[in-house]
Computed example of a mutant assay.
Amino acid sequence: MRILYIVLILSLSMASQCCAQNQGQSLLLDDFEGPISGGPEGTVDFGAGNGSSVEVTAAQDIKYSGNQSLKAVYDAVSGGYMYMARGFGLDAKNTAWLVKPEDIDWSKYKAFTFFVFGSDSKTQVAFDIRDNGNEMWRFSFEDNFKGWKKIVCPFNMFFARDDWQPNNADNNLTLDFPIKVFQFEPRPQAQGTLYFDCVELE
């Protein structure tokens, strides 16, 4: 009995060390827990135009962790656009991450990561970020898998968008930290449903 007790204590200790190590390697920015809503008081700044459409809600049935994920039902038509954004300085008031950008030591991290529940739709999905100079940067991936997959977006693989930039962007072609916003955009032409969860820095 004494031996079993010692083994149990050692196992718990090793598990705690693994958890601590994982926490040291990554920083959770957003888990999409809590109410998901749009509009001026919303928790997600989302919209679409030029014929495209998107509806953003919480999904409790399909989630990677916690109680829910972010669900996007989209129809991306040729010439259209859409966005689903979280962060700071957006039109919606309650879109903040779990951590403020200025409180992050960005030099410790090399990539954004998140989990996507795909359907092998072959949809091209853009993951955009807005830097400290309001310049928009893009990383793209394809929904060529089924179920949950971790997407890794190294900082050095982002490129400055040449199709659109905010009016107040400095357009200096330098990724300036801290990053203030991230957003998802399924690209035309495509329609379907995607689920997102657990946005982190690694």
Rank of each mutant, 00 (worst) to 15 (best):
M1K: 07
R2W: 07
L4K: 11
V7Q: 10
V7G: 00
L8S: 13
I9N: 09
L12S: 09
S13Y: 11
S13A: 15
C18H: 11
C18T: 10
A20S: 15
N22M: 15
N22G: 06
N22L: 14
G24R: 02
S26R: 08
D30W: 03
E33G: 14
P40L: 12
V44E: 00
D45V: 08
D45M: 05
A48K: 03
G49M: 11
V54L: 09
A58V: 06
A59T: 04
D61H: 13
I62W: 11
S65D: 13
N67T: 07
N67C: 03
N67L: 11
Q68Y: 08
Q68K: 05
L70D: 05
G80V: 11
Y81P: 01
Y81K: 00
M82I: 04
A85K: 08
R86L: 10
F88S: 02
G89N: 13
G89W: 09
L90F: 05
A92C: 03
T95M: 09
A96K: 13
V99I: 14
E102T: 03
E102M: 00
D103Y: 04
W106L: 01
F114V: 01
F115V: 08
V116E: 11
V116L: 09
D120I: 00
Q124C: 03
Q124G: 03
Q124K: 12
D128M: 14
D131A: 03
D131P: 02
G133P: 05
W137Y: 13
R138I: 13
S140Q: 08
F141Q: 08
F141K: 08
E142W: 01
E142P: 00
D143W: 09
F145W: 08
G147P: 02
G147Q: 06
G147W: 12
W148D: 02
K150S: 07
C153G: 01
N156M: 04
F158R: 12
D162L: 09
P166A: 13
N172A: 10
L173T: 13
D176K: 07
P178I: 01
E185F: 01
R187N: 05
A190F: 04
E202I: 12
